[in-house]
């Protein structure tokens, strides 16, 4: 198969690559929150809020990845 002969849109590939980083990031955020709640269960409410905040910041990068597909780049 000749790679140069492939046609189609590159945006899905960009999104696929863009999800890798945020996926790892969200995993770390949630994992650390679980760890903290296991250590101090009484802080769960506050930690959950912080966790969603951290997830929101991290996953914004993946959403920029999706948005790329909607930008009309000159071909």
């Amino acid at each position: 198969m000749d790679l140069a002969a492939l046609t189609g849109h590159i945006a899905p590939v960009a999104f696929g690559i863009a999800t890798i980083g945020p996926a790892i990031g969200v995993g770390i955020v949630v994992g650390k929150t679980v760890e903290s709640v296991a250590r101090q269960p009484e802080l769960q409410g506050r930690l959950t809020g912080l966790m969603f905040l951290g997830i929101a910041f991290t996953e914004a990068l993946a959403f920029i990845g999706i948005a790329v597909a909607f930008i009309p780049f000159p071909a």
Binding site: A56, E59, A60, F63, I64, I66, A67
Partner: peptide, 13 residues
Amino acid sequence: VTLALRLLMNMVG
């Protein structure tokens, strides 16, 4: 930009 994109792309996705 991220505030708008986060909401929009969650809903579109």
